[in-house]
């Protein structure tokens, strides 16, 4: 089993996520440069956080059109598990793999802190080591994390249970106070209809080992390692 991490100019969480993937999978991922048009034959693709192309035009817009993304889109559409974290989530919405868009935070401020997330789906390749309804603590660090979509798309997301994580209070309840960026319905992470593509603003790789101060992110990588080994 193997994974690929896509690296753009301005990615800055690519090495962090590579460490988490190697710890879970026992094998370092391929680091694939954005200008490559070939992607190794992998079981998992990760689009990492950062500020690809300096967030020019819109966050993720330039990266979504870089050569390697054509292949990422084709593989994801063919069923390869694909995870986009933070800027990676923005890239996956911009290239059409996930619905909606990440707008400027409602506060207009860059938000960088740990947040509580409620796990809405524990039956996916990304989340099978969590429990549904579990509250986990994961850091966010973004300026454009305000999830928005039109009412019809939002209804479809809810009806199809495509919301993977929501920002919540420590007891799991949802409120405006626990929403760090103004996202619709406190949405922190969404799945595609097939359930093999996940985008999320919080950074599981930043709390994936005790040395970092927490391990709530580790089950995501354990889930993926188990899913792609099967």
């Amino acid at each position: 089993m193997s994974a690929a991490v896509i690296v753009f100019p301005g990615s800055n969480c690519d090495r962090d996520v590579a460490v988490s993937l190697e710890a879970a999978m026992g094998r370092a991922p391929y680091m694939v440069w954005h200008g490559d048009s070939e992607l190794p034959d992998v079981d998992l693709i990760v689009v990492p956080g950062g500020f690809s192309y300096g967030d020019y035009l819109r966050s993720g817009a330039m990266a979504a059109n870089s050569p390697v993304m054509r292949e990422v889109v084709a593989r994801a559409n063919a069923g390869t598990p694909t995870l986009g974290i933070c800027n990676g989530f923005q890239v996956l919405t911009e290239c059409g793999l996930l619905p909606g868009v990440l707008m400027r935070n409602a506060s207009l401020k860059f938000v960088c802190r740990d947040v509580d997330l409620r796990v809405e789906r524990a039956d996916t390749v990304f989340t099978r080591h969590y429990r549904e309804g579990q509250v986990i603590r994961i850091p966010v660090a973004h300026h454009d994390g305000n999830y928005f979509t039109d009412p019809d798309t939002l209804k479809a997301l809810e009806d199809n249970r495509q919301v993977a994580f929501r920002y919540c209070a420590p007891d799991g309840s949802l409120s405006e106070d626990s929403n760090p960026n103004g996202s619709l319905a406190n949405i922190a992470g969404v799945l595609n209809a097939g359930g093999n593509v996940l985008g999320m603003m919080p950074h599981p790789e930043r709390l994936a080992e005790a040395l970092l101060g927490g391990t709530d992110g580790a089950p995501m990588f354990a889930s993926l390692a188990e899913a792609v080994a099967a």
């Binding site: 035009l57 919405t93 911009e94 868009v101 979509t149």
Partner: peptide, 9 residues
């Protein structure tokens, strides 16, 4: 359509 605008918003 392809780049300059995100027609979702």
């Amino acid at each position: 359509e392809q780049l300059l605008a995100n027609t979702v918003i």
